[in-house]
Computed example of a mutant assay.
Amino acid sequence: MGEESVGLYRTLSADDLVHRTAAVLIHLGQAIAMKAETNPKSADYATQALDIIRPLAARNDKYKPQLSEWILYPAIDFLVSTGQKPRAIQLAQEAVDIFTALNQSDPHTYGPRLALAKQRLAQLQQ
């Protein structure tokens, strides 16, 4: 049991490290997004962060809210600002799907976020 505990601890530490790596990419993208010439790099950093955290969220539900939040902001905004609206629409639909599932277990917390994700998706589809 001790070895199992150590293994679980290492897995949790690895998950936390993965999450922190994705967070750094998000923050880096936000830091450079104000300049037009670095906007494409911001979009790249945001999508890299999503690609990093997506498998983590698939394994551990506690990361799903963070994935959805990063999709809503900043990823969608960065993609739209770089002319990647179709990709932004796909991400908005992903956020709606995630928040729909989360809303089933906690409507008080995730209902407003689901409504926001649906609104954002509708705006992008216009």
Rank of each mutant, 00 (worst) to 15 (best):
M1V: 00
E4P: 00
E4Q: 06
S5Y: 01
V6P: 00
V6Q: 01
L8M: 13
L8P: 00
S13M: 14
A14E: 15
D15S: 12
D15G: 00
D16E: 15
L17Q: 15
L17A: 15
V18F: 02
H19T: 05
H19P: 00
T21R: 15
A22K: 11
V24Q: 10
V24R: 14
L25V: 07
L25Y: 04
L25I: 06
I26W: 03
I26T: 05
I26K: 01
H27R: 15
H27A: 09
L28C: 08
G29S: 03
G29V: 13
M34E: 13
M34A: 14
K35E: 14
A36W: 04
E37D: 11
N39H: 14
N39F: 11
P40V: 03
P40Q: 05
K41G: 00
S42N: 03
S42A: 15
D44Y: 12
D44F: 07
A46Q: 04
T47H: 04
Q48D: 10
Q48N: 03
L50R: 05
L50M: 00
D51L: 04
P55F: 03
L56W: 02
L56S: 06
A57C: 01
A57F: 09
A58D: 15
A58W: 01
R59A: 10
D61I: 10
K62A: 13
Y63G: 02
Y63A: 08
K64R: 15
P65S: 03
Q66K: 10
L67D: 02
L67T: 12
S68D: 12
W70M: 07
W70F: 08
W70R: 04
W70K: 06
I71T: 12
A75N: 05
D77L: 09
D77K: 12
L79Q: 06
V80T: 10
V80F: 06
T82N: 10
Q84C: 04
Q84P: 06
K85D: 05
P86T: 07
P86A: 06
P86Q: 04
A88Q: 05
I89E: 11
I89R: 05
Q90A: 11
Q90W: 00
L91C: 07
A92Y: 02
Q93N: 08
Q93G: 04
I98K: 00
I98V: 11
I98C: 03
F99C: 07
L102G: 06
L102W: 06
L102V: 11
L102H: 08
L102Q: 09
N103S: 13
S105V: 12
S105A: 15
D106G: 06
D106L: 01
P107M: 09
T109F: 05
Y110D: 06
Y110Q: 02
G111Y: 06
G111Q: 04
P112D: 04
P112A: 08
L114A: 07
K118V: 02
K118W: 07
L121T: 02
A122Q: 14
Q123A: 09
Q126I: 08
Q126E: 09
